[in-house]
Design a protein around this nucleic acid. Structure first.
Lengths: 216, 216
DNA sequence: TGCGAACCGTACCGTACGGTACTTTTGAGG
DNA sequence: CCTCAAAAGTACCGTACGGTACGGTTCGCA
């Protein structure tokens, strides 16, 4: 367990504070509210420092995404024996977490920012957001699904396809609707459970399907 | 059959031509390429006309969404008897159409525009996009699903939930990924069929499940 | 032929932003 | 106490955009 995998922060604490302020401005007022002058004023730093640290405005936006991603720590799965009930519980927690993350202020603001910029610059921000922000979630889900297969609770050939199915069942079009400004969903807990039930019905082995309530 | 329900075009043909040019500019260069001066130059009209017709820039953006939505015509479902095979075929066509629409240049550009603006103005553009651009698709899918239920091929209590499940199975996270600039997907036809298979396995009655290939 | 409305082209205005330069302050090390 | 580098604060520049004003032009219509 060396120190390197802790991602050496990549930025100094002062810079992190400035990036935090930048995220706050972005959440409060959208992209047009995130001006270099405004950030310098709000964070009590000079514009010259901003350009020295981050290069230009695009560098600042990239740094914001990297900083936000660095705050997320993945939950590791201990090699526990995966019973149907345990898998179902883990999947449900994952589904609820996923919906909660996607509905978060900062997540929505950063996704809106990257999507709004995804025409220019070879969609650099978009790639960054997918790679740095999504990897943790993907790995957690894939670990769960693989554990389910090893435990004989799930059955599938293509793990990626199973994962994408799970993702679609959980999120459906909620993410895009939230990005478009629709107020958040009620009953996200219920929705998460229904999604997991459907997933188990599709990919569960017989012993997993035993206690799934009828979909209708 | 009065002329009113044909949506009196809402704009003159000259204005439609300008809106078409505006869409083209948006697709080519993103939002920052859609300036009033640039549009006036490209469409050979005066800025004064733009402001007379659409009020201000926001009005122009709204008009672009309304115009694009007015080009879509829903495919009506004749009251045909719905056999399992017919439903499956219809659903597959729907799934392919949906993926094709979402991957379209203009659709992506308008969604990016609305998402980028969804902080200001009470997300007016976002609501407009959902209501005017999505209704056709939703109604077509709901008609299909209802026909399947009436024909005894599908079984469910909540039609909306069934539809959202279908949508999630088809689209998964593809829409957001494309919005973020990821190049389009290969094998969208294959993906559509797998989604329909999964949907039928979840919501189909016995006679519908007969000819579903195994998911694994 | 003459009239009037709509419209084009262009010039203009105020503003606000990204980025740069310069002066002053801070604060850690010797 | 002195030094020096980093950073704050401020002023500045060029540009580009949204929006307005105005003179010239087209075109339907009487």
């Amino acid at each position: 367990m060396s120190a390197e995998n802790l991602e050496p922060s990549e930025f100094s604490s002062r810079q992190n504070a400035v990036l935090e302020q930048a995220l706050q401005l972005l959440v409060e007022g959208g992209e047009k509210a995130l001006t270099t002058s405004g950030l310098a004023r709000a964070a009590s730093c000079s514009k010259e420092s901003l350009y020295k640290w981050f290069g230009d405005r695009d560098g600042l936006l990239s740094a914001m995404i990297a900083y936000q991603a660095s705050k997320v720590r993945t939950v590791e799965l201990h090699g526990e024996r995966m019973t149907p009930a345990a898998l179902r519980e883990h999947l449900t927690v994952f589904a609820k977490d996923l919906l909660e993350v996607l509905a978060g202020d900062v997540s929505l603001a950063l996704n809106r920012l990257a999507i709004g910029q995804s025409h220019r610059s070879g969609s650099k921000l978009g790639r960054l957001l997918i790679e740095r922000g999504r990897r943790q979630i993907d790995r957690r889900a894939m670990a769960l699904i693989d554990a389910g297969k090893r435990g004989g609770v799930l059955r599938f050939n293509d793990g990626d396809e199973a994962y994408h199915t799970l993702y679609g069942l959980i999120v459906s079009d909620l993410h895009v609707r939230m990005l478009l400004g629709e107020p958040s969903i009620k009953d996200s807990g219920k929705k998460a459970e229904r999604a997991v039930d459907a997933f188990l019905q599709l990919y569960g082995t017989e012993k997993a399907k035993a206690d799934i309530p009828a979909l209708t």
